[in-house]
Nucleic acid binder design. Structure first.
Lengths: 205, 205
DNA sequence: CTTTATTGACTACGACTGTTGTCAATCCTA
DNA sequence: TAGGATTGACAACAGTCGTAGTCAATAAAG
């Protein structure tokens, strides 16, 4: 049965192709109309597939969104790892990674929405992002000081993520009027110093 | 004409009452179904008013949302100012304010969504929040160091806002498993040290 | 009582949604 | 060629949406 073909391809291959078509269509819709533009019918319409094929790969919209997020995240991770692979100290690495990320989100509205904005309004993506967060953070921060508890580390990562999301989204919205270099520089410094919040107990003003 | 009454009240008064009914209905819908639950028809249904009265006070959904945001923000600001009005140093003030804010958002899901989550998915609210941000931040941070540029101050405020949003939303979602005291403590330290990022030029690791 | 303003309950337009089923046409294998 | 799998194009159900107009009933003032 699995060897049977249609148009020269197996059913498994056709399913994989259709699945990818749906992911691409969803990302395209995000870019055009934001997350609200991603409905089952809209995605199928854009992919030129009937709704039957949606349910071939995804139980519901949420499952599709998570798959889109995973795919875009994986691409972003590759870009970050490549940008950070320049050797040098923590600051140089952080700067390269942040600059690469700023370029990615400025240049690609759809991916920006998926990576930064969507997790803020889609609970499933927020959870997924939280799961993947340590991986992204580790690119630029290396090892946390041993004195930090797991909780401090967790809070630090979430705080950094929130801060970056806020800054980047404000920057592209025009709510933050600074140059790109200043933004990158600030983010780098923030990333590097983030552990200081947690690593210095008993701070007084 | 303005003195003419209906049921003992003037037209202006009735308009004000209906407007408030719509605001209350919107907040109630937020609590039940998130921002997606707030449509013109749903709000009017909940307020038991016909759609005509929606357009009496608001041009569209966005204008209603901004009004809801403004009202909830004003209430939150009062709560923060009262909590912070305890005298003492910056840390004590910050702690009181953060603890009060955490209590507010944990106890009131609708207000939490309006204050923290909605600005992340509704552009008009993001802009409004950016405008009001300096006011909230000033409660707990007093004056920024004179050495900071306006840009650094702006970025610092946005970073802090994003960090707090991220931490609080993760906390109430169960994505961040720490105690409330640990969260408050971390946020206070972060708030107090946020200016250090900007105030120390040329940080090296 | 007459006139005007206000209210409440619809209708209309032109779409949209998620999910599932039906049926005819096409393709493939034996 | 026959049988079964696959495809493509719908229809169906039961709703939803934003915006504006219509009309009868009610209220108020002179």
């Amino acid at each position: 049965m699995s060897g049977r073909t249609w148009g020269g391809t197996t059913l498994a291959d056709r399913k994989a192709v259709r699945r990818q078509q749906l992911l691409i269509a969803a990302l395209e819709l995000v870019g055009e109309a934001g997350m609200a533009g991603v409905s089952v019918r809209a995605v199928c319409r854009t992919a030129k597939l009937t709704e039957r094929y949606f349910y071939e790969s995804f139980a519901d919209r949420e499952e599709l969104l998570v798959a889109v997020f995973d795919q875009v995240s994986a691409e972003a991770a590759v870009a970050l790892f490549e940008a950070a692979d320049i050797g040098g100290g923590t600051e140089a690495v952080a700067k390269a990674a942040v600059a690469a990320f700023v370029e990615l989100i400025v240049d690609d509205p759809a991916r920006r929405i998926v990576l930064l904005a969507a997790p803020l309004s889609e609970p499933a993506l927020a959870r997924r992002q939280t799961e993947l967060l340590p991986r992204f953070i580790s690119v630029v921060q290396g090892q946390a000081p041993g004195s930090m508890s797991a909780q401090e580390r967790e809070m630090g990562a979430l705080a950094v993520l929130g801060a970056l999301q806020s800054l980047f989204l404000a920057y592209v919205d025009g709510r933050l009027t600074v140059g790109r270099d200043a933004l990158v520089s600030y983010c780098v410094r923030m990333l590097i110093s983030a552990y200081r919040v947690g690593s210095r107990m008993g701070i007084t003003d």
